[in-house]
Computed example of a mutant assay.
Amino acid sequence: MGKAKTSKRGGAASGPYERPAKQAAANNVFKFSKDFGQHILKNPGIAESIVAKANLKPTDTVLEVGPGTGNLTVKILEQAKKVIAVEMDPRMAAETTKRVQGKPEQKRLEVLLGDVIKTTLPGFDVCISNTPYQISSPLVFKLLSLPNPPRTCVLMFQREFALRLTARPNDPLYCRLSVNAQFWARITHVLKVGRNNFRPPPQVDSSVVRIEPKLGAERPNISFEEWDGMLRVCFNRRNKTLRASWLGNKEVLSMLERNYRLWCATNNIPVDDTIAEDGEDDNDDMEVDENVPPSAGDEAEWGGIMDVDDAADDTPSFFKELKAAGNEVPKTKSKRKKTRVALLVKEKVRKVLEDVTELADHRSGKCDENDFLRLLAAFNAEGIHFS
């Protein structure tokens, strides 16, 4: 009897009932890009909930940032008049277009290829986005700074970023981001989304927030650059007292002096640039609470996963021994002579913190919006500006 024929390993199937060879990327159209933060929302129930939270009208034009393969886009098109989808990846833009090709919705979808932060956006009523983590903060403030901001924004972020947006004074996550965002909009947390609802799953959970920009008379009538410039100093170390943040930092005082000189020059106000005599500045060696540990809200811009590496203590042993023995480490005196205008600026800051606002011993993490408004108004009244 002859031997049965056997197919060679890795060869093509020789009959209609044999299994085809497995391929590594059989179920993937293409690889997802980590550079673009591509995590596709695969749960249709979550997509429906996000669209429902936007309270769309049949006449609304919706801006979607990062549509991916269009899972959220098709849900929005069911309720809105038009969708403007902004996508960085040409492959994803093609996938989104394919979803509505040959359907009535095709005429109501406009896909813009490019970076949403750098793109000049057309007019729209609502923004809905499964936001890439790395553009979370820039996207929020781009939307809030538009001349005609949208009625509502329903955005999905990394969960910790979302909690920072909604944090209030005394909350451990309360930071400059919290104050800025809540000053220009009403923000509410609406939905928590587990990491397993995405493909591929991210390393962290996500949350959906609703942002309703303040419009008309509610919109603050102050410069965002100046407001944010003051908050940068306050939240440099949120657990320090405001006295230490402003008067205990030579770089901050130098910056205020430069700004004051510019303001005086703009308003034709002469400044006293003579050198101050020794002993004229009685508070030169002011004690500051440097032992307060940095807080999680100290970063200038925060968006995405934050990796913190504990740096080794490189302090020389000589200084460690002095500190252990209770002796003060000798300070090197500055070679730069102080001018009277520098002392004037320092006195103005002291007056604002101690006499006018009485916030010198307060900490930024415990101050609310009204405290910061009083602080800005008092600084401006003394000719100190931040933009």
Rank of each mutant, 00 (worst) to 15 (best):
D125F: 01
G70S: 01
D60S: 13
K331T: 10
N239G: 15
A378C: 13
V154A: 05
D125M: 02
L373K: 14
P172I: 12
L63V: 01
C367H: 02
E290M: 13
W184M: 04
N327Q: 13
V252P: 02
V341S: 10
D355P: 02
E301M: 10
L215A: 05
K57W: 04
P132I: 11
H362A: 14
R91S: 11
D171E: 11
E64K: 07
Q101C: 05
F124C: 08
K42G: 10
A181V: 07
F318R: 13
A12V: 08
E257N: 11
I275S: 09
M286L: 15
P58E: 14
M156F: 06
N28S: 13
L247D: 12
N180A: 06
T266N: 08
K31D: 02
R186A: 06
D60R: 11
T152W: 06
D228E: 06
K107N: 15
N249C: 13
A360M: 07
R151S: 15
G70M: 04
V154G: 00
G70K: 01
N327V: 02
E160K: 04
T120K: 07
G15N: 09
I269Q: 10
Q203V: 15
V341G: 05
A80G: 11
F157T: 07
D313E: 11
E301N: 09
S7I: 05
K323L: 14
A342W: 15
P90I: 03
K335N: 01
K348A: 00
L242A: 13
W263K: 07
F183W: 05
D371W: 09
V126N: 03
T152L: 12
A325E: 15
E287A: 14
L63W: 03
C127G: 02
P147G: 12
L139A: 00
F183E: 10
S137Y: 01
N249V: 12
L163H: 08
Q106G: 06
S254K: 14
D310R: 11
W263T: 05
D89G: 06
I269E: 10
A162Q: 01
N130L: 03
Q38H: 08
T357P: 00
D314E: 15
N130S: 11
S207C: 01
E358V: 10
V29G: 01
V329A: 10
G123E: 12
I384F: 07
F32Y: 12
K5H: 05
